[in-house]
Write a protein that binds this DNA or RNA. Structure first.
Lengths: 201, 201
DNA sequence: TAAGTCATGTAAAAAGTTACATGATTCT
DNA sequence: AGAATCATGTAACTTTTTACATGACTTA
């Protein structure tokens, strides 16, 4: 612990502490838990954000690390949650989350879609439905692997470490299924507008 | 149009162009369309981001503005979409949206909730359900006002200007209802964990 | 031989948040 | 008298994105 005047921990910082609360990991491994297709189960971030964030957490004493040499692989730094990190994380979890700002390009496109040809607009939303279906398959595949590989009960009980990942997978799947339905409904509305336009022409 | 080497327009920029495609507005008015409780119908942003963004759009020739003096009110700048802005917006709408990164503190808290007392964890999710219910009421109230004030058909047809706002309100309401259900389910899981803990104690 | 995985970083730019700043009018 | 609304901005900071940088080993 170099700098002990507890600097503020970012949301990403807490996400990393939460990963380390389950088991020790390298930055490389953590960056995979925050990148597609698994980012929806925790927090989205690229490796270029992870490495500096881990350095900050280590400097503040919330995590420690040890360099581990590997045969025919580059060395890695394996991080471990400190007592201070564990306390900070548990205290943060009890606080109400700050509201997630709504910032989806699809919403803006829906707002402006009346400006373009209805057939093209319908395509935008049907294509989105397709991409979202692909995401559902990827998250579903991860969920199935969870189930197969789990040594504990499945689904995990709420006091077991994997419960959060399970619950977040349920949420990610449900919200994407809902998005697919909505996209197809929007596309249908544009189809109807095409028909109406044809009649009045 | 001062600087015509078409600089890249941000997602926020397109959101502002989309507002101006419906009718002319001041920055002040647009900042209300991107702040709670209406931000979920377009794009979330504070006024300190809006004003510089409008200056950039004006400098690039995508919008124009006129200063309008008002009685017993400060002067305002009323912005208007230019032809270049309209073309840029329509061309952007046809492109597939960039995926919205998943970044919600609630997801991180679900991931880490096994670390704390199950009763406290249940409270975190029940409180979130309450706040989300309040959001549903606010968005629902706006939706009802839309319906009452609309001079056209309601619900709007897909080729009418207000269709996007209507569709986005439907999405915002549905996704929040789903979030409420999920939060209550998660809270129940922690309740069950409390009972199990009591039996084995 | 080219692409992919493992592994860690830095730099620069863009986007977003929070705070500072002003001032008249209107509502409680 | 104090708070809210109308109205526009800037400054400092934090967070996120994109690009640059390196290098061994493995698979197609």
């Amino acid at each position: 612990m170099r700098n002990s005047d507890n600097p503020r921990i970012s949301s990403l910082g807490y996400a990393l502490l939460s990963l380390l609360a389950r088991r020790n990991r390298s930055g490389y491994e953590m960056s995979h838990s925050t990148s597609p297709p698994l980012d929806s189960l925790l927090w989205s971030a690229g490796h270029s954000q992870i490495y500096p964030e881990l350095a900050k957490l280590a400097d503040a004493g919330y995590v420690n690390f040890a360099a581990v040499a590997q045969a025919r692989r580059p060395d890695k730094k394996v991080y471990r949650l400190s007592e201070a990190g564990s306390l900070a994380l548990k205290s943060w979890v009890r606080q109400p989350p700050k509201p997630a700002p709504d910032r989806r390009e699809l919403t803006v496109k829906a707002h402006a879609a009346w400006l373009i040809d209805p057939a093209e607009a319908a395509k935008v939303f049907r294509d989105q439905a397709e991409r979202t279906r692909a995401e559902i398959l990827e998250i579903g595949a991860y969920h199935d692997r969870l189930q197969t590989q789990s040594e504990e009960t499945f689904p995990p009980r709420a006091d077991e470490p994997m419960f959060g990942t399970y619950a977040n997978a349920i949420y990610a799947l449900d919200s994407r299924r809902q998005l697919v339905e909505w996209c197809l409904w929007v596309a249908e509305q544009f189809d109807t507008a095409i028909e109406v336009g044809r009649k009045s022409a």
